[in-house]
Nucleic acid binder design. Structure first.
Length: 436
RNA sequence: GCCCCGAUCGUCUAGUCCGGUCUAGGACACAGGCUUUUCAAGCCUGCAACAUGGGUUCGAAUCCCAUUCGGGGUACCA
C-alpha cells in the first residue's frame, strides 16, 4: 500500500476549537500509525472572516498539543491562480458556466449532472448514497475571485495527493458535491472518513455558552497537553479494551480509523479534569514546578525570596490536591504571603476555643526549646502534647494547621511546618494565640 | 419542508461486522465504607443502560423494517 497522505485544513476564523483539535488529532494519529504524511492547509478563502491572529492561535494550539505536521502550511489564498485554471478547464469543457448576479457580480458555477446516483464508501459510516437532483449546482469561483470551500478543497486534496479525507460529520453533505467535482475533473476520489461531532454537555452543538471551547483556554486553565490529547483521543474512539490512560505513542500504536465511533460524543469536563489530575500526579516535580511557576508569578508572589528547591518541594506537596495547575496559586498563599489569611470559621472552631489556645500555648512552649524542624522529633513532640492533654492527634494538628495556614485544610502538618520554617512558625503561633 | 447521519448506565465507552460465552464489562460522576494528621489521594462496595414497536430466528444489544428522539446539511461560510 502506498503511503497515506492526510490533511488538517482549518479555516482561520477563530481559535482552535475542541472539535477542530480532535479532527486534527485523528488525522495526526492516522498518519502516524501508518507512517504517512500529515499536511497542514489553511483554508482562508473567506477573506472577510479569516485573520492572521487566528492562524497564529491555531498553530500555537496544535503545537501545544504536540500535533505536528509534515508538510505545509499551505494557504489557499496564495493558490488562487490554480483554482482559476481548473475553473477555466471546466468552463471550456462546458461543465461549468458563468452566472451573473446583479448585486454580487459574475461567478463560475458547476452544473451538476442530472439523474446520477453518487455513492461514497465512508470508512466510518459505510456506504452512503446521494441523488444528484438533491445535490444541486456548485459555485466554484465567487464573484470576489476567491474559490468556494468545496472547489478549493477538491483541487487541493487532489493536487496534494491526499489519500484519506478525515473530517467532521458536518461535511457529509458536501461530499457528493466534491465527488462530482473529482469526476468532472477526471481525478481519483480519495477515501473519506467522517468523524462525528463533539456536542456540549447538554447534547446540543458545542458552542461558547458551554463554557470553554477553545484549546487555548484549557492551556490557560492549567490543563496538561497530554491530558487533553489523551481525553480527546477517547472522545469517539477506544482501543477496544478498557485501557484509558495511554501515552501518545501508545495511542498512535493502537489507533485505527475503523474503531472510531459513528455516534456524536458529549464533551465531559469532569472526566477531562480527572484525567488531568492523573497526569499532574505523575509529572516529575521539577516539570510540575515549571508548569506552576507562571500561575505563582501571576498571583504576585515573589519567588525570588525562596530557594528553588523549596518551591519545587511546595508544588510537589500539592500535586495530589490540585486538579488543574492554576489552582496552585490560591492554595499556596499561606506560604508566600507574610500575613496569614485567617478563615473565620476555622479560627472559631479550632483556635478561639479554650482547648485550642491551650494546645497552641503548649506547642509554643515546646518549640521554644528547639532550633531545628525535623519530622521525627517534631512528630514525637506533638504527639506527646496530644497525649498529655488527653487529645487525639488531630486535636493538636488542627489548631496548629489553622494557626499556620489560616485554613483547616493543608498538606500534612509536618511538611507544612518545615516549609514555613521555624521562625515563621513561632511567629504565626504567637499571632494566632493573640486572636480575639 | 427536503436530503443525510446516528441511538448500550447521567456522560465517555466495550460488546454489534462473524446472532448464543451479556443475569451487558470498564471509566468519569454520584452514594456509602476503609485508611487517616485536616483536605485530598488511595483502596473497597453500591447505584445505574441495550429508545419504542414490529419482524427474521430454536435464540437478537447484535440482522431487517417502521416509529420516536437527537444531530448535521440545505450560502457566491468553511
Amino acid at each position: 500500500m502506498d503511503k497515506v497522505r492526510v490533511r488538517f485544513a482549518p479555516s482561520p476564523t477563530g481559535y482552535l476549537h475542541i472539535g477542530g483539535a480532535r479532527t486534527a488529532l485523528y488525522n495526526y494519529l492516522f498518519a502516524r500509525h501508518l507512517n504517512g504524511t500529515l499536511v497542514l492547509r489553511i483554508e482562508d478563502t473567506d477573506h472577510v472572516r479569516s485573520t492572521d491572529e487566528s492562524t497564529k492561535a491555531i498553530f500555537e494550539s496544535l503545537n501545544w498539543l504536540g500535533i505536528t505536521h509534515d508538510e505545509g502550511p499551505y494557504y489557499q489564498s496564495e493558490r488562487r491562480d490554480l483554482y482559476k485554471q481548473y475553473a477555466q478547464k471546466l468552463l471550456d469543457e462546458g461543465k461549468a458556466v458563468y452566472q451573473d448576479d446583479p448585486a454580487k457580480g459574475r461567478a463560475v458555477v458547476f452544473k451538476m449532472p442530472e439523474g446520477k446516483s453518487i455513492r461514497m464508501d465512508d470508512l466510518i459510516h459505510g456506504v452512503i448514497k446521494f441523488e444528484s437532483k438533491f445535490v444541486g449546482d456548485i459555485v466554484l469561483i465567487k464573484s470576489d475571485g476567491f474559490p468556494t470551500y468545496n472547489f478549493a478543497c477538491v483541487i487541493d486534496d487532489s493536487e496534494m495527493g491526499i489519500t484519506h479525507v478525515i473530517r467532521g460529520d458536518d461535511h457529509i453533505s458536501n461530499t457528493p458535491k466534491q465527488i462530482a467535482l473529482y469526476e468532472a475533473l477526471g481525478k481519483p476520489v480519495p477515501k473519506f472518513a467522517h468523524i462525528p461531532l463533539i456536542m456540549g454537555e447538554d447534547g446540543s452543538r458545542l458552542s461558547k455558552r458551554h463554557g470553554h471551547t477553545s484549546v487555548g483556554e484549557y492551556k490557560d486553565l492549567g490543563y496538561l497537553p497530554e491530558a487533553v490529547f489523551n481525553f480527546l483521543s477517547l472522545l469517539g474512539w477506544s482501543p477496544g479494551d478498557d485501557t484509558e490512560i495511554m501515552t501518545k505513542d501508545e495511542i498512535i500504536k493502537r489507533f485505527t480509523i475503523e474503531r472510531v465511533k459513528d455516534k456524536s460524543a458529549q464533551f465531559n469536563l469532569k472526566k477531562l479534569t480527572w484525567m488531568n489530575s492523573h497526569y499532574i500526579k505523575h509529572k516529575p516535580a521539577e516539570d510540575l514546578f515549571g508548569l506552576a511557576e507562571p500561575y505563582l508569578t501571576k498571583a504576585g508572589y515573589d519567588l525570588s525570596r525562596f530557594p528553588k528547591e523549596k518551591l519545587v518541594r511546595l508544588v510537589d506537596l500539592y500535586r495530589e490536591r490540585i486538579k488543574v495547575v492554576s489552582e496552585i496559586a490560591g492554595i499556596t498563599r499561606f506560604f508566600f504571603e507574610d500575613a496569614v489569611n485567617y478563615q473565620p470559621e476555622a479560627v472559631d472552631k479550632f483556635i478561639k476555643t479554650t482547648e485550642g489556645k491551650a494546645v497552641l500555648g503548649a506547642v509554643q512552649d515546646e518549640l521554644a526549646k528547639i532550633t531545628k524542624l525535623e519530622h521525627e522529633p517534631l512528630e514525637n513532640l506533638l504527639r506527646s502534647i496530644a497525649e498529655s492533654k488527653g487529645l487525639k492527634f488531630q486535636g493538636v494538628a488542627q489548631p496548629l494547621r489553622v494557626a499556620l495556614t489560616g485554613s483547616s485544610v493543608s498538606p500534612p502538618i509536618f511538611e507544612t511546618m518545615e516549609l514555613i520554617g521555624l521562625e515563621k512558625v513561632k511567629g504565626r503561633i504567637k499571632e494566632a494565640i493573640a486572636l480575639k
